[in-house]
Design a binder for these strands. Structure first.
Length: 862
RNA sequence: GCGGGUGUGGCGGAAUUGGUCCACGCAGGAGACUCAAAAUCUCCCGGUCGCAAGACCUUGCCGGUUCGAGUCCGGCCACCCGCACCA
């Protein structure tokens, strides 16, 4: 950033705030003063505060979501710094991932070239925002210095039994010969080839996150600075459920399969069984397919359904009767058909369920569709057992069991206990706790990711790469002209000798899921250049992150994986904490109106001109524009606004101010051009307030005191708003203070000056450049606002002598009265009843009850 | 489909957590300044009725609890986020 000298006198003479000159100047000043640098290990007694925003994927340009995210974090960082904390506020890049490979295939640019060019550009853009970041800690996850340390962590996890090799299903594009991500599967077809996607079984690496399931669930209670909804979503995702595993004996073994095990949370409804259903990947389904071409066709069809749970759950529920039958564990002689069903998930429970249509909506829909019986077994309270029947809605609530043999008369909870006891007695299964959470598959068949540091040897199996050979670095000479994983068809890279026996062996060619990269970066920031993953003293001092800020879309996966990683790093001796993020704030998305031209093509906002009558036309023409709904900014709909253009035109403070002022930060916000213009006007207004500071002709002490009271009320209100992340309210309170200063033309200069200086300091976390600019002219030589302590309200000036009470009659507002703050009930009621409009409302009726809430309201009941 | 959330003027929203609904801003209207425009400054601005005082209605919809409900409870509707290989 060029350092443009700009003498104070020149600024004062100008009639407009020159943000383009001022903003880079203050950015350099902060850098020179090293305002935002902190040591890896803070000095004894320092109050540390770690502020972190989710680091960006380097897509090429920052977008408004980034501006919002990093502005929010910056306000917190600057505010906490002013409060006397030693604040660490780093930035880095989540730099591995699919888009770089797509760019390589489409444009022939190497992923590394593309990624580092994007980072360079985005770093420049972020710097223009004036964020209080410590750039010395910057790294990208695609730096070998970072991912090499990640490989060490993986090997430690492997040694400690936190990693497993298992088989799992992937989306397979049979034409491209490529594994597809879920987002690359569109309507069951590969996005490039258009081929019907198949499921394919691959051997892959898994992190044993399920080992921590109980702790990950229980520890949510301690995360009291996390949004309740995120904790709820995580709890539901981990999904602890009590139930039973029950083995059903086959009525005639199939191959060597003599029984099928199901998991159920409703063992009490076993007498309501109608069928048994298995997943298409279940061994019984395979056995059926081997015997019956129709079964094989159905299994093949399920296999083309993709691996995404959302797709599976929304697909039409379908099944195939295998002809096999199982025996009921309780009812002598009863047998039930075994179906293959497309909604049974192999990954959950045992891959098989027993169907009780009267007590489960999905089972009921299935039974109705295929004409299976629906025996009711739970009678609603007050229901008549003789006539109760299920129509098209299953009964899932508590009731009394009936038609259920030894369970008759019990309620659901007792029924569960009794049924489990009997199952265990019969040796047909047992009560178990089941978890929805699955182990975390981290293998990806891609080039642009962290290589998994393992060598496969025919004799020794999977052998860890020895410490001395780390890091395993990605080869640079890769060929993207053919589909599939370039690492796999690289001519030499994968051919190595087994570290154990020395024979020819193969490198693992899979790379890590990019969620691995982002699961420990917050720890690496504490000592970003260390030659081990983390240094103990640094992470012990700085972790956990005190305030983490990012999008709600990461509420489950990223946050859960990071919580797992921290536990795994604790277990392997790298960190001392279990929870990575003590405080979490989830921001809403940035949205904009969308526009379409006459021919239906999407238009960018800058191509559209709004007319006074509310209609819109294409700028510089007469083509009508259809204004669409407000939705999340996306490139495909072109409803994006480039932050760079906004900052160039209005300055960083304006962009920051608007993005904070529009609405509460946890809600979606609508970017609007007029809103930005409004923010820009306010910046100009504050600047003018400072230019017009001179002694009043007839200074009025009373007006001065009033202004100071308003100032100190503002200090209290803004502080409270910032504490609770109500930045839009903080902005409103600062507006009010500006209005108060503007209205106090007769107040003595000293009072107006104190008020304005307070305004600058209260606004400085949000508009740091203007605050510095004006502070430096009002208080030359008084240092940087960025290094000043936060203001505290003077309690003496917060006191009020009187208070306005609302007077209600029968709960309806009929007037207000002004009373002393400490007025007694008698005085208050007398004043209330004397009020003219209140008298009219009472209309002479006797007052039955009088309610007085101090400082708030009086309610008279007649 | 399952899990989670949101809904208050023309618009974004505020509301000491059960106590004066609509602070602050945007848009709009009127005026001042100006040859004019921009910028700036002042005033008005939820709806209906009324000359006014004021009355009635109003926090997505329907019902309930309470002296009093945007806030608590029950039932719906709409939209948004996530669903394990997008990041």
């Amino acid at each position: 950033m060029p350092d443009t000298p700009h003498p104070v006198a020149a600024i004062a003479a100008a009639d407009r705030y020159d943000f383009a000159a001022a903003e880079p100047r203050w950015q350099s000043a902060w850098e020179e003063a090293a305002c935002f640098s902190v040591p890896d290990v803070p000095p004894a007694g320092a109050k540390k505060y770690y502020v972190l925003e989710m680091f960006p994927y380097p897509s090429g340009k920052i977008h408004m979501g980034h501006v919002r995210n990093y502005t929010l974090g910056d306000v917190v960082a600057r505010y906490k710094r002013a409060q006397g904390h030693l604040v660490m506020h780093p930035m880095g890049w989540d730099a591995f991932g699919l888009p770089a490979e797509n760019a390589a295939r489409e444009r022939g640019t190497h992923p590394a070239t593309w990624t580092y060019a994007n980072i360079a550009n985005m770093r420049t853009e972020l710097k223009r925002m004036g964020l209080s970041l410590e750039w010395a800690r910057e790294f990208a996850t695609c730096d070998p210095e970072y991912y090499g340390q990640q490989q060490k962590l993986f090997l430690d996890f492997l040694k400690d039994g936190l990693v497993e090799r298992k088989e799992s299903w992937v989306n397979w594009d049979p034409v491209d010969g490529t594994v597809l991500a879920n987002e690359q599967v569109i309507d069951g077809r590969g996005w490039r080839s258009g081929a019907l996607v198949e499921k394919k079984l691959l051997s892959q690496w898994f992190f044993s996150i399920t080992k921590f399931a109980p702790d990950l669930l229980e520890a949510l209670d301690g995360l009291d600075r996390w949004p309740e909804r995120v904790r709820l979503m995580q709890a539901n995702w981990i999904g602890r459920s009590e139930g039973a595993r029950v083995r059903f004996e086959m009525a005639g073994a199939v191959d060597d399969i003599a029984e099928v095990e199901v998991f159920t949370t409703r063992p009490d409804t076993l007498f309501g069984m109608s069928f048994l259903a298995v997943a298409a990947e279940h061994p019984l389904a395979a056995a059926a397919a081997a015997r019956d071409p129709a079964a094989a066709a159905f299994v093949a069809e399920c296999r083309s359904q993709g691996t995404s749970e959302a797709v599976i759950e929304q697909a039409e529920k379908r099944g195939f009767d295998t002809g096999f039958r199982v025996k009921h564990p309780f009812i002598e002689g009863a047998t039930y058909p075994v179906w293959i069903a497309n909604f049974v998930l192999m990954e959950y429970g045992t891959g098989a369920i027993f169907g009780c249509p009267s007590g489960d909506q999905r089972d009921l829909d299935f039974a109705r569709k295929y004409g299976l019986p629906v025996p009711p077994v739970v009678l609603p309270r007050g229901g008549d057992p003789a006539t109760f029947a299920i129509a098209d809605e299953a009964f899932t609530e508590d009731g009394t069991l009936f038609n259920s043999g030894f369970l008759d008369g019990l309620d659901v909870a007792e029924g569960k206990r009794t049924a489990i006891a009997r199952i265990e007695e019969l040796g047909r299964g047992k009560g178990v706790t089941n978890w929805r959470l699955r182990d975390w598959g981290v293998s990806r068949q891609r080039y642009w990711g962290c290589p998994i540091p393992v060598i496969h040897c025919d004799d020794c199996g999977a052998v860890p790469v020895p410490q001395g050979q780390l890091p395993v670095i990605l080869p640079e000479d890769v060929d993207f002209s053919r589909p599939g994983n370039p690492l796999d068809h690289h001519p030499t890279w994968k051919h190595v000798n087994c570290p154990s026996c020395g024979k020819a062996a193969r490198r693992e060619t899979d790379t890590f899921d990019t969620f691995v990269d982002s699961s420990w970066y917050f720890a690496r920031f504490c000592s970003p250049r260390a030659d081990q993953p983390v240094t103990q003293a640094a992470v012990d001092a700085w972790l956990p992150v005190d305030q983490y800020i990012g999008g709600i879309e990461h509420a489950i996966l990223h946050l859960l994986y990071s919580r797992f990683f921290t536990r795994a790093m604790h277990e392997t001796g790298h960190v001392s904490v279990d929870e990575p993020f003590a405080g979490l704030f989830t921001q809403g998305m940035v949205q904009h109106e969308s526009y379409k031209g006459a021919d239906g093509r999407w238009l960018y906002p800058e191509e559209v001109e709004k007319r006074p009558d509310g209609t819109a036309i294409v700028r510089g023409g007469d083509e009508p524009v259809t204004v669409g709904r407000v939705e999340s900014m996306s490139k495909s709909k072109r409803n994006t606004v480039d932050p760079g253009a906004i900052i160039g035109r209005y300055g960083a403070d304006t962009a920051r101010w608007f993005i904070l002022s529009d609405n509460p930060p946890d809600r979606d916000m609508e970017w609007s051009e007029s809103g930005v213009a409004g923010a820009s006007r306010f910046i100009g207004r504050v600047w003018r307030l400072a230019q017009n500071l001179r002694e009043a002709e007839a200074p009025d002490e009373a007006a001065g005191r009033k202004l100071l009271q308003a100032t100190h009320r503002s200090i209290a209100a803004v502080t409270e708003a910032l504490e609770s992340f109500a930045f839009n309210v903080a902005v409103a309170r600062i507006h009010e203070l500006a209005n108060a200063i503007g209205d106090a033309a007769t107040a003595p200069l000293a009072a107006r000056r104190e008020a304005l200086e307070a305004l600058l300091r209260l606004a400085s976390p949000m508009m740091p450049h203007l605050a510095e600019e004006l502070w430096s002219t009002l208080r030359p030589g008084a240092g940087l606002v960025a290094q000043l302590p936060w203001l505290e309200a003077d309690p003496e000036l917060l006191k009020a002598e009187t208070v306005t009470l609302a007077v209600q009659v029968l709960g309806k507002l009929r007037g207000t009265i002004e009373v002393a703050v400490d007025a007694s009930d008698e005085v208050v009621f007398a004043a209330a009843e004397a009020e003219e409009n209140v008298q009219r409302a009472i209309a002479g009726k006797p007052i039955k009850k009088r309610i007085h809430v101090k400082g708030r309201v009086v309610n008279l009941v007649v």
